[in-house]
Amino acid sequence: MRLRHLLSVATAGVLLAGGLAACGQDGASADGKLPVVAAFYPLQFVAQRIGGDAVQVTNLTAPGAEPHDLELSPKQLMQIAEAKVVLYLKGFQPEVDKAIDAQAKDKAIDVLTLVPTLTATGEEASETPELQGKDPHVWLDPTRLSTIAATVAAKFTAADPAHQAQFADNAAKLAADLAELDMEFATGLKTCQRKEIFTSHAAFGYLADRYHLTQIALTGLDPEQEPTAQSLADIAAEAKKYGATTIFSETLVSPKISETIAKEVGAKTAVLDPLEGLPTGSTGDYLSVMRQNLTALQSALGCS
């Protein structure tokens, strides 16, 4: 991987001279739009909602792909170099971190620095040393995502002052949508028979913290981690203890482990989407998928 990355950087450097000609001297793309790069889906959602038709947003992570596994192509490296704003989460996608360190430090926003973070503990913390023990999944708390969006709007305005009013108006509308979503979650999860959610990996710490739930994860922060037989037995015991009716799986990760635990404890499986990316062909967005998550949680927890 190291050699492939170095070759990609070298190739991008050759392409860059020609590629930059597609941007005007003011940094706008050929069609006059502000070029923005988002590392993965939730950041793309924020960028598109705030920028509207004044920005051209490139998502580095394709629909249906697991963002942790991202390897950048020479074209993507060039897109990062050409962008006026780059949105990423440091430590979440190491290849993106390398590219930003090489050519985009002055225009990149690490969204993890914009909001209070939760600390991963035990094995979860050791799985992703690049995150220095922090849980990266901040976008699953709508209030934190709203804070991130406000900074993105300010960054867009600094890069393209002519569209300040448009960015401010779009940011206000997004803030209102996220506040409404937050209220729906708070109300919908206020009175439930259970508070424990059994998830396929530890992606829902911020959601659980915001709405007074307890996350019990089959694996840690890395969705591809293989749990030990003992950890599976421990989780099955907890599921029986709390009377869990549902073990959650995800859209971009194999449901086999969740299905194994569900069968062991006599529960069903359902999808709880961490929104790290949208499935290929999806017509939903952050708001609609979060509302699907709320419905799934209400069913699993016996909420009235």
Rank of each mutant, 00 (worst) to 15 (best):
L7F: 14
S8L: 05
V9T: 11
T11C: 12
G13C: 01
L16K: 03
G18E: 13
G19R: 12
G19C: 13
A21P: 04
A28V: 08
G32V: 08
P35R: 03
P35E: 05
V36E: 09
V37Q: 05
A39W: 04
A39G: 13
A39Q: 03
Q44C: 01
F45Y: 15
V46P: 01
A47C: 09
I50N: 04
V57Y: 08
T58C: 07
N59E: 10
T61V: 15
E66N: 13
H68S: 02
P74C: 04
K75A: 13
Q76Y: 13
Q79A: 15
Q79W: 02
E82Y: 01
P94H: 07
D97V: 06
D101R: 09
A102I: 10
T117V: 06
T119Y: 02
E124C: 10
E130T: 07
Q132F: 06
D141M: 02
T143P: 00
T151V: 14
T151I: 08
A153R: 10
A153T: 10
P161A: 07
A165T: 14
Q166K: 14
F167M: 08
A172L: 08
K173P: 01
A176E: 13
L178K: 04
A179S: 14
L181T: 08
D182A: 04
M183H: 15
F185P: 12
A186R: 15
A186V: 10
A186L: 10
C192F: 09
R194F: 09
K195P: 01
K195T: 13
H201W: 05
A202R: 11
F204K: 05
Y206I: 01
R210N: 07
Y211V: 05
T214F: 00
E226C: 04
T228V: 08
A229I: 12
A229D: 10
A229K: 13
Q230C: 00
I235F: 07
T245F: 01
T245G: 15
I247H: 02
I247G: 05
E250A: 11
T251C: 04
S254D: 14
I257E: 06
I257G: 01
I257P: 00
E259T: 13
T260H: 07
K263S: 13
E276H: 00
G277C: 00
P279F: 12
P279D: 12
S282V: 06
D285F: 03
Y286A: 07
V289N: 07
R291F: 09
R291V: 08
R291K: 15
S304R: 11
